Computed example of a mutant assay.
Amino acid sequence: MDTEALRSFVRAAELGQVRQAADELGVTQQAVSKRIAALERELEVRLFTRTPRGVELTLDGQAFLPHARDVVAGVDRALTAVRPGSRALRIDVLGLRSAQAVVLHDYWRSRPGTDLDVVTLRVNDPAVAVAAVRSGEVDASFRTPTDPAALPDDVRMIHAFDSPLELLVGPRHPLAAARRVTPARLRGHRIWVPGIAPGSEWAEFYDQLAAAFGLRVDAAGPNFGDEVLLDTLAESADVATLVGARDRYLWPAHHDLRRIPVAGPTLAYPLSLLLPRADPHPGLRDLVTHLESLPGLPGEVWRPSWATRAAQGAGEAGALRA
């Protein structure tokens, strides 16, 4: 079915005038009349009757109008979806309570007119994120492949921001009363991070963290979700975990969990942004500028070795803004 004929029918029905519809659509009155006549032939019904004041819908026209509107609206949405200058900026984050989502929310609040679509890919795998960026499923992704050299030529990675870690413990934990702790003070304590996928960026991060400071990182057991983790911390006198300082966690008041900053050095998880090299969404320029404006972490900071390789892509951000 000719969607332009549907559009002509809808505007003529809404305005009650074929001439006005033609003026709005930027075509001649004759063109609109021909489109509507062709539509009536295809449907084998009369959609309008002519009156001295213009046109009025027949009963068939009244029945057809809401469906025609839906089709025209769907076509408009489809066209918008493939026009980078007009569709929403679609960004993948690890979770809607993650540091990436918090930073994106701050960005949106500073630019409330921004059309932003925040999504989470179903599989927590940087390779899946790379494929999503390449296919256009998302415009960018906050994922960090630990080997930037293995990225395909049409995808680049820039440093987004560093996420400092905090110790999260229950009220019975030996460190619960501490106002801050050093990494050295965590030695001997069980740091439970369940569900770390082998070969993932998180696995390499915690492997390097444990080796650098002699920590006991326990990845035993499947990840049953934040609620189970928080319940376990509240009940335990020896289990702790590490969380991002910007990550949002909610727990019942009686859990009385404590978030304790880690410093001397600060433990930083470097977050990166994957984006296409060619024809990036125009909205990415402002987002990258916002990320660059975020303050750095003060004092001594520990980062994994692959953070240096990831940060090398940050120099390419200037090309994106140009």
Rank of each mutant, 00 (worst) to 15 (best):
D2Y: 04
R11P: 05
R11I: 12
A12R: 01
E14K: 14
E14C: 11
Q17E: 13
V18W: 01
V27K: 02
T28I: 08
Q29E: 12
I36C: 05
A38H: 15
E42T: 15
E42M: 12
E44I: 09
R46S: 07
F48R: 01
F48Y: 06
F48Q: 03
R50D: 09
G54I: 11
V55H: 00
V55Q: 00
T58M: 09
G61Y: 06
A68P: 07
A68L: 09
D70T: 07
V71H: 14
V72E: 05
V72K: 09
A73P: 00
A73Q: 12
T80C: 09
A81I: 05
V82W: 12
G85R: 15
G85F: 15
L89P: 01
I91F: 01
I91T: 00
D92A: 04
V93Q: 00
L96S: 02
V102F: 01
L104S: 02
W108G: 03
W108T: 03
S110E: 12
R111A: 14
R111H: 11
R111N: 12
G113E: 15
T114P: 10
D117A: 13
D117N: 14
V118A: 03
T120K: 09
V123C: 08
A127S: 13
A129M: 09
V133P: 00
S135T: 08
G136T: 03
V138F: 07
D139T: 03
S141Q: 08
A149Q: 13
A150T: 13
L151H: 03
P152N: 12
D154F: 07
V155M: 06
I158K: 01
H159L: 01
D162A: 09
S163E: 15
L167M: 08
G170N: 04
P171I: 01
P171E: 08
A177I: 03
R179Y: 11
R180M: 08
P183N: 08
A184T: 10
R185A: 13
G188T: 13
H189C: 04
R190S: 02
A197L: 14
S200E: 06
E201K: 10
E201L: 09
F205I: 03
F205Q: 02
Y206C: 06
L209S: 05
A212C: 07
A212M: 06
L215I: 10
R216I: 05
D218S: 00
D218K: 02
A219Y: 04
N223S: 15
N223Y: 12
F224H: 15
F224T: 10
E227R: 14
E227Y: 05
V228G: 08
L229T: 12
L230I: 10
L233S: 10
A234H: 02
A245D: 05
W251R: 03
W251V: 06
P252C: 14
A253G: 12
D256W: 00
A263P: 01
G264Y: 07
T266C: 10
A268Q: 11
Y269T: 04
S272K: 01
L275T: 03
D286F: 05
H290T: 02
L291I: 06
E292W: 04
S293C: 14
G296C: 06
P298R: 07
E300Y: 09
V301H: 15
S305I: 14
G313A: 10
A314V: 08
G315A: 14
A319R: 13
L320V: 09
